[in-house]
Write a protein that binds this DNA or RNA. Structure first.
Lengths: 109, 109
DNA sequence: AGCGGTACTCGGTAACACTAAGTACCGAGC
DNA sequence: GCTCGGTACTTAGTGTTACCGAGTACCGCT
C-alpha cells in the first residue's frame, strides 16, 4: 500500500497504546507488531518518537530490562492516565470512522 | 466530541474530495456539509486551505459564479486526476480502517 | 448607516509521522 | 579477534496537515 503517513496521524499513537495495553512490551517489538498488522512501512524511529511522547505525557510506566539477544529493552505499560487516553482514542475513532463510512455510502449527498 | 484535529489529518481532504465529487459546490457550502455530517468543529478557514491545495495540485476545476446572497462563489468540480485521487483515498481508508478495527477487536494480541 | 449572514484569502502555529545519523549490545562466521 | 547482521534506543531536523486570526468584501434588512 502506498504512503499512509498522513492517514496515520492521530491514529498511530492510539494503535501503540492498544498494543501496550494488551501486553507490557518494548519499542522494537511494537514496531514488528505494527508491521505484522499491515502497517508495513512503520519503522523503529517513528515508534520511538511516539513512545517518548507517551512517556513525556505521563501515560506509561517504563522499566528497563536486560535482553539476551541485544542491548537492554525499555518495557512500557499503561498507567491509569494511559488507559483513559486509550478509551478516549477508541471513542474518537468510533466517532470519526463511522461518519466517514457514512459519507462514503451516501456519496456526500 | 472533543478535539478531532489530529485524527482528521489525511482524511479531511478525502472527505472534501468526496463531497465535491457528489456535486459541484463551493467552500462555504462544503463547510456546512461537513458540520452536518458530524465534523462540527471544522471551520471555513480549514476548508479553504484544503481547496486551495486541491487547486494547486491540479485535482479540481474551478469556476467563479455570482451569488444572489453574497459575494461570488468559487465552484469546484473534480477532474480526472481528482477522481483518481479520490479512489486512492478510499482504497487507503479501507486499508487503514480495516486494520485498525482488527487491532481493536484482537486487542493487539 | 449599520448589522448579520455569506464568501474567500493569507500569514502564522502546533502537532504529528517520518528521516537520517549516531550509539551500543550481542552471537555467529571468517 | 574482527567483522557483520540483527537487536535496541536516541535525537535533531523535515514536510505535511488542520487550525487560528485577522482582514477584505458582497448582500439584504432594519
Amino acid at each position: 500500500m502506498e504512503d499512509l503517513t498522513e492517514m496515520l496521524k492521530g491514529t498511530l499513537e492510539g494503535c501503540v497504546l492498544e498494543i501496550i495495553d494488551s501486553e507490557e512490551t518494548y519499542g522494537y517489538a511494537i514496531t514488528r507488531k505494527l508491521n505484522e498488522l499491515g502497517f508495513t512501512d512503520v519503522v523503529e524511529g517513528t515508534v520511538y518518537t511516539v513512545l517518548l511522547r507517551l512517556e513525556r505525557n505521563g501515560l506509561v510506566q517504563v522499566a528497563k530490562r536486560p535482553s539476551a539477544v541485544g542491548p537492554p529493552r525499555k518495557f512500557y505499560a499503561l498507567n491509569d492516565a494511559g488507559r483513559e487516553e486509550l478509551a478516549r482514542f477508541w471513542a474518537k475513532w468510533q466517532y470519526v470512522s463511522s461518519r466517514i463510512d457514512k459519507l462514503r455510502e451516501s456519496g456526500g449527498r
